[in-house]
């Protein structure tokens, strides 16, 4: 044993001066003393009581306390493990739901965009047709107004021309002649 040298050294160092000083015998070796034997008898009684106290009461109780703690810790660990598994399951489900929702929402968005585009296209086509109609209408109106204006211009021109000729030449020109000449100029 590793401890042996220390033990023997302590025994040797310890007992030598004791024997040197006392010279005589150890009280422990005095077996003639009735107390030497009596202490063993009393020890047997004390140890017997202590043994029954330990074996019947103290040790089983302490063992029970320790066992209860061990099982409590094991139970808690098991509960925690189950909770963890449940939580992990919930997280997987949640992720799946999120992915599904994202996919369905994306398709809904695509549908809505497509519908909106179609609607916009139809509206713009309708508007274009309406505008084309209006442009056409306006152009014919302008043309009519132009013709009207031109028609309205002829008597004025005849009047002006005849009055100018009257001042310049001092003679009356027939309206037919003026009209013929003006028609040549305007055309």
């Amino acid at each position: 044993m590793r401890r042996a040298p220390i033990l023997y050294l302590s025994i040797a160092v310890g007992t030598m001066p004791a024997i040197a000083m006392a010279g005589s015998k150890l009280p422990q070796m005095d077996f003639a003393d009735p107390l030497t034997g009596a202490q063993v008898v009393w020890m047997a009684i004390i140890m017997l009581v202590l043994y029954f106290l330990m074996a019947r009461w103290a040790l089983p109780q302490i063992g029970g306390v320790i066992e209860k703690r061990v099982s409590h810790i094991a139970n808690d660990l098991e509960t925690a493990r189950q909770a963890k598994a449940k939580a992990e399951h919930a997280v997987t489900e949640l992720n799946l739901a999120i992915r599904n929702a994202r996919e369905s929402s994306q398709s809904a968005i695509a549908d809505a965009v497509k519908a909106a585009k179609e609607r916009a296209r139809a509206q713009s086509a309708e508007l274009n047709a309406k505008l084309d109609d209006q442009i056409e209408q306006a152009e014919s109106d302008i043309k009519a107004a132009q013709a009207q204006a031109v028609a309205a211009l002829a008597p004025v021109a005849r009047e002006v021309t005849s009055s100018l000729l009257m001042r310049l030449t001092g003679e009356e020109v027939s309206a037919e002649r003026i009209d013929r000449t003006l028609a040549l100029v305007v055309a």
């Binding site: 302590s10 025994i11 310890g14 007992t15 004791a18 000083m21 422990q28």
Partner: peptide, 13 residues
Amino acid sequence: FANITAGHVMWEV
């Protein structure tokens, strides 16, 4: 016995 005796004797010595 020897260990305990030795220790106590050394103390007193």
